[in-house]
Nucleic acid binder design. Sequence first.
DNA 1: AAGTGGTCTAGACCACCTC
DNA 2: AGGTGGTCTAGACCACTTG
Lengths: 233, 233
Amino acid sequence: MTFADRQSWKDVREEIRSRILDSTYRPGDKLPRDHDLALELKCARSTVQRAMSSLADAGIIERKRKGGTIIKLDPVTRATINIPITKVEIEARGLKYRHHLITSAVTKAPLSISARFGIADLNSAVRVKALHMAAGRPYVLEDRWISLETVPEFRGVDLSNISANEWLVRNRPYSRCNVQIYAELIMKKEANLMEVPEGSAMLILERTTWIGDEPITHVKATHTVDYRLITNG
Amino acid sequence: MTFADRQSWKDVREEIRSRILDSTYRPGDKLPRDHDLALELKCARSTVQRAMSSLADAGIIERKRKGGTIIKLDPVTRATINIPITKVEIEARGLKYRHHLITSAVTKAPLSISARFGIADLNSAVRVKALHMAAGRPYVLEDRWISLETVPEFRGVDLSNISANEWLVRNRPYSRCNVQIYAELIMKKEANLMEVPEGSAMLILERTTWIGDEPITHVKATHTVDYRLITNG
DNA sequence: AAGTGGTCTAGACCACCTC
DNA sequence: AGGTGGTCTAGACCACTTG
């Protein structure tokens, strides 16, 4: 096989990957050092390094200083999910977005919510329940807690004009985010709001965000019955 | 603020991120060119470039040649999920893993499966139904199709010793993967296998993999009732 | 046409880990 | 102690996009 004078690191990655795919290198095998691969493929070592670190990120190989690079025996499938702002998601599908505020109240957060934030007590928070509608039909039901200790100015926000999510995203960037995904049977009250039969299986996404170690918001989002999260990887 | 002689690209990324967090740069703003930031932070332009491309990957900024770098108005939350081999996942939790083959048959794939692979017809495939047990209890129920046209040697695999997933992962690396996540009510037959009440809400992960454009396998994995996918990002 | 990001090269030094 | 990957620098050229 021959190579152009100038190699892109993606070419190098695909070359290494194809050697894994055609079993030139097998799970458990040790790969040549970056330096030698660079000589063979006629490129700079940093180009090989970039290709290798991309494969390591993907969970296909494992690299150790001095130990070298080996093909993982138990590769992990990594998939990235994109969670857009609900309004943007709906409008990107060409549907009309509407936001309906159900309740909004200042209160102390229960232990379960404080625990999610990893703190002992959250004494001052806003709890917002809201419904996001797509083309007049319920799309996402959200149950959200916003820390007034971290975001005191949220007290004055008029949620009839802008959703809590949108306001937060535009005004309070977060530095850390945790997502949990699970399935849950819907109860009668929520079923009525979502206009689905009681006992339907719903996909739930819970997101918690912090700035540094300070809690910003925790939201439980209940999605329409036929909602699918789709990823590429 | 002062900086060390030698900056790591992560330091640079955190510096830029902190300027976003403290509103030095606001959503919609244009950031300085890489060259100027490099001068200001006393590092090479490639270091700034690396920091910037990391932020762009995270969905926080948007970069365009000639157009420059701007802070996104609608940042996307990106979370990465790790999907390990079920056996590895169970054993990592300190539980005993067992694999139970339910059925295995050579057949033609239905249109719905062929469509998932993006091909017209898959005439020769193996359909495997199997149960993965953790500490003697059902953990994942899988319904899998393996293309014999792409992986003919799968015909001879003894699935009483090794799960289809494990065999594939160790023998047939894929080059492309698609994941779909949704919630579904469980039917009577599957409920009996999973030892849960009929009509429970189950989290479903569907994975499809290809090598190049050739289909390898499609699997629908039904997880235990209380299963949660947890991500970091 | 010109300005911006994207990436390669060559060399250097460092950090971590086996050996 | 030495070998390996990790990453920075400085410079160059390229590719894309806008003015």
